[in-house]
């Protein structure tokens, strides 16, 4: 519940014009952001709104991925590509 109060304050600050940059491991919190970058091994893999990030992980089997699905899929795809290359 501390996180809820925290986000309520962050939203209030943003509404007042404060710019907020945040890192989080809570994928539901990623939805509260206006825009995001997704990083892996020092590289930016994707950036955009939460909907744009989720859309990048769409596939016929997963037409409606959650942010967590998108995170796992994009990072795993990138990291296995790096491993193959090395």
């Amino acid at each position: 519940m501390a996180r809820r109060e925290f986000w309520q304050r962050i939203n209030a600050l943003a509404a007042q014009g404060v710019t907020v940059l945040i890192t989080t491991h809570f994928m539901d919190e990623a939805e509260y952001c206006d825009r995001l970058v997704l990083m892996s091994l020092g590289e930016i893999l994707a950036q955009g709104s939460p909907a744009e990030l989720r859309a990048q992980a769409k596939s016929p089997e997963h037409p409606d991925p959650s942010m967590e699905d998108a995170f796992i899929k994009l990072i795993e795809a990138y990291e296995s590509q790096i491993r193959r290359a090395s």
């Binding site: 962050i10 939203n11 943003a14 509404a15 007042q16 014009g17 404060v18 710019t19 907020v20 940059l21 945040i22 890192t23 989080t24 994928m27 919190e29 990623a30 509260y32 952001c33 206006d34 825009r35 995001l36 970058v37 997704l38 990083m39 892996s40 091994l41 020092g42 590289e43 930016i44 950036q47 995170f71 990072i75």
Partner: peptide, 20 residues
């Protein structure tokens, strides 16, 4: 890395542990 953040935005950085 290349990105920009506008005034009043909430901008998230996601990544695995050790992503940078």
């Amino acid at each position: 890395s290349t990105f920009s953040v506008r005034r009043g935005e909430i901008f998230g950085l996601l990544g695995a542990n050790g992503a940078g």
